[in-house]
């Protein structure tokens, strides 16, 4: 997947010929401060936002995990997956795998915040997406639940190997889930690395020189 894109909102230039290339089946975490265009980049990749641009080559089948679960209130967890285009059997299997087998027939209002976000993650994986876009999907969850979900996410990713672009401002999350980490600042890639870690996902709080360097890059923005 590759592209060269430009995007501006009126006077404000978000990207000016941002060039990128992502290997098929890679998991890229995009780090950066608020307002650097991370969500705009995902929306362009999903085809939700127009861009003034040069070229963009993106797979047809896209899955998206938003900051909020965005589930239809009138449908059960399982029906929400079917609505998004997942095969029923595969939807049930992924919901079981993500630990929601008892809740699959419940509507969103009967699920906790964490359960709803797990349904959203299941929806993205179960629909056979070739490209998975995640916009700070775990930012509203407590640490324990977040770490459990990282593990589930990594397990599902290893099984299906979709191309992943995960946007976050949490260095721990990027370190845990990014097989490649990119730092974005003012619409430009300022740092790009393939970290060496102890497993996937990396253990929470792992300390390495490379991670320290990444932290210094972020602090210097």
């Amino acid at each position: 997947m590759k592209g060269v894109i430009s995007k501006s909102y009126g006077e404000k230039q978000v990207f000016s010929e941002l060039s990128f290339e992502i290997e098929r089946g890679d998991a890229v975490c995009v780090l950066g401060a608020s307002g650097t265009g991370k969500t705009t980049l995902l929306n362009i990749l999903a085809g939700l936002t127009e861009f003034q641009g040069e070229t963009l080559d993106v797979p047809e089948k896209v899955g998206y995990v938003f900051q909020e679960p965005r589930l239809l209130p009138n449908l059960s967890a399982l029906e929400n997956l079917v609505y998004a285009g997942c095969e029923r059997a595969e939807a049930e299997r992924v919901l079981d795998k993500i630990g929601l087998s008892e809740h699959k027939n419940k509507r969103p209002k009967r699920l906790s915040g964490g359960e709803k976000q797990r349904v959203a993650v299941a929806r993205a994986f179960a629909c056979g997406a070739e490209l998975l876009l995640l916009d700070e999907p775990f930012s509203s969850l407590d640490t324990a639940l977040k770490i459990r979900l990282w593990e589930t996410f990594a397990e599902l990713w290893k099984e299906k190997q979709p191309t992943v672009v995960l946007v976050t401002h949490d260095i721990e999350e990027a370190w845990a889930l990014g097989r490649r980490i990119v730092v974005l600042d003012k619409g430009t890639i300022v740092y790009d690395t393939r970290p060496k870690r102890a497993g996937y996902p990396a253990p929470y709080g792992e300390k390495t020189e490379e991670k320290e360097k990444l932290l210094r890059v972020l602090l210097g923005l």
Partner: peptide
């Protein structure tokens, strides 16, 4: 609007959007 955007992202067919959303 968020659900409309979600439906667009997942390329949900129009017929299903009408009946489901």
């Amino acid at each position: 609007k968020d659900l409309i955007e979600m439906s667009r992202a997942f390329k949900v067919p129009v017929k299903r959007r009408v009946s489901g959303l």
